[in-house]
Nucleic acid binder design. Structure first.
Length: 136
DNA sequence: CGCTCTTTTCCTGGTT
DNA sequence: TAACCAGGAAAAGAGC
């Protein structure tokens, strides 16, 4: 395959991909886009970005899914799409899930995330905030 | 400029 | 075999 398709072309398709993907699911529950003022997804940190994505079904597109809402356990359903979105947020079209997950693993050390021994499953730790339903 | 903190990049090796 | 997971190391980038 080509070595040249990693710039403009990719950049263009990422948004289209995300947008069209959102359109498919956003019609489901427009009412569910509760008034969290976090729709922008401008969070500076990765864990906040993930949290806000989890909390906004609008831009989520089924990329992330709660496994246990009360315990803050969630699963990455579309790892590649998540990486692309994070890459968009950071203006880095070379982002991959491999690299994103490395960053997530650093959170275990700081208590932002807790380890869950299941593939693509993570859990918010004691030092993460703003994800709990009753605390919104 | 230098320093800290977070994230990125790369890698070796193990697991599902 | 592909897709993940574990972390060490080093370096980039942002903010102060």
């Amino acid at each position: 395959y080509s070595f040249f398709n990693d710039t403009e072309e990719t950049k263009a398709t990422i948004k289209d991909y995300a947008d069209s993907n959102c359109l498919k699911t956003s019609g489901i529950k427009s009412q569910d886009c509760h008034s969290h003022s976090r729709t922008s997804l401008q969070s500076s940190h990765l864990w906040e970005f993930v949290r806000d994505l989890l909390l906004s079904p609008e831009e989520n597109c089924g990329i992330l899914e709660w496994e246990d809402r009360e315990q803050g356990i969630f699963r990455v359903v579309k790892s590649e799409a998540l990486a692309k979105m994070w890459g968009q947020r950071k203006k880095n079209d070379r982002m991959t899930y491999e690299k994103l997950s490395r960053a997530l693993r650093y959170y275990y050390k700081t208590g932002i995330l807790e380890r869950v021994d299941r593939r693509l499953v993570y859990k918010f730790g004691k030092n993460a905030h703003g994800w709990q339903e009753d605390k919104l």
